[in-house]
Design a protein around this nucleic acid. Structure first.
Lengths: 141, 141
DNA sequence: CTTGAACCTCTAGTCACTATAGGGACTAGG
DNA sequence: CCTAGTCCCTATAGTGACTAGAGGTTCAAG
């Protein structure tokens, strides 16, 4: 009923080095080892790692996941902490969408106006060089 | 007509260490120095750095900016390279928006269903722990 | 000439992994 | 029992685009 790190990786779709990384930073408890020092996992490990993976998919950072895991381990606490973490993440996502939408608009405008001749009259390059450009925040991606 | 790195930073809204970083990685040419080895910039530096800043605001990565700058330096080339770089960026942005929109939906659902009682019946935690969860790609932010 | 802000280089840290090197353990077949 | 091949181990360094800090030097104003 116990299995290797590679098997855990296969079952959770999390890469082997990532699992070791999660252990190193304390997201996953160090599992028992074989005599030859190889890690052995059980079903609970799958659940825990899947939890982490789902949280990462939703973009929670490691600190948030640490908090969410500790909530899961203490089910008698109020849910409001989890709620606050998820709300904060939602706010981030919404802000991100808004700023990317603005980027999209600007990129579309640049591209539409580009007649695709020489660089000398290229709207893409011109737009970037335009010193009267509004100053937004840097795109984080 | 020439000025310090701090002045350049002030005029372009790019931080001093970032300017030195751009020089180090070859995005900005090393400027002349005073006898005491302090950098001295001119108006052209402002234009170049502003260009870089605008490109970063639009989320172009350093390699893309390197290419865009070299296009600007050779204005007789075809504009199609710039067009392709910008189009690729637009595609990235659109993909990002799509995946963040999916995240938003899921976060909203989690939060709406959370009755905010004990963690034991918290939908936020439950959703994360749900092993039947669809497997999307990890959110890159 | 003195003060103090701004400048210099160099190194290390951020985040969440990913890659590599150089080895040891486990399993199936002969 | 031996071997081949796959998996596993640790430790270190690299990614992108900066940011922070230490420890020292230069500049401009008064």
């Amino acid at each position: 009923m116990d299995f290797s790190i590679g098997e855990l990786a296969r079952r959770t779709q999390v890469k082997v080095p990532t699992i070791r990384y999660y252990e190193q930073i304390g997201l996953l408890a160090p599992p028992p080892r074989t005599e030859g020092q190889q890690r052995r996992y059980d079903k609970k490990s799958i659940a825990r790692l899947a939890f982490i993976r789902h949280a990462r998919e939703l973009g929670f950072n490691i600190e948030a996941i640490r908090a969410l895991l500790s909530l899961q381990d203490n089910p008698d606490q109020s849910c409001s902490v989890a709620d606050r973490i998820a709300s904060a993440r939602l706010a981030e996502v919404e802000e991100r969408i808004a700023s990317l939408s603005a980027l999209r608009t600007e990129l579309q405008r640049m591209l539409k106006e580009c007649a695709c001749g020489r660089v000398a009259e290229c709207r893409v390059i011109e737009t970037l060089a335009d010193s009267t450009h509004r100053h937004g925040r840097l795109a984080e991606n």
